[in-house]
């Protein structure tokens, strides 16, 4: 029985999904703060949200890189 493989898959799934969700959620949150009318948010908040979305995109790209054998050999 491949219990170890099962655990690896479970772990990898958790790590990957949590990474993407955390980054994207942060991005959404920061965009929301940057968009607030009453309290003027500092400009860096907006850029930080872009960074979050960017990192999220990179994480997804890395996932693609892993599944497409053409790239990963």
């Amino acid at each position: 029985m491949k219990w170890l493989e099962l655990l690896t898959v479970a772990g990898a799934t958790l790590v990957a999904a949590v990474t993407v969700v955390v980054l994207y959620s942060l991005g959404v949150r920061l965009t929301a703060i940057a968009g607030d009318r009453q309290v003027a948010a500092p400009a860096w908040v907006k850029y930080l949200s872009y960074v979050c979305f960017g990192l999220c995109a990179i994480a997804v790209m890395f996932g693609l890189y892993l599944i497409i054998p053409y790239f990963s050999g």
Binding site: K2, E5, L6, T8, V9, A12, T13, L14, A16, A17, V20, V21, Y24, S25, G63, L66, I67
Partner: peptide, 24 residues
């Protein structure tokens, strides 16, 4: 937000399993 979370998990699980060899 739920849909996003669900799809992220689905995608990760499928990719992880097909890459690590425990087919789901």
């Amino acid at each position: 937000a739920q849909g996003f979370a669900a799809e992220s998990s689905t995608a990760s699980a499928i990719l992880a399993s097909s890459h690590l060899g425990f087919a789901l």
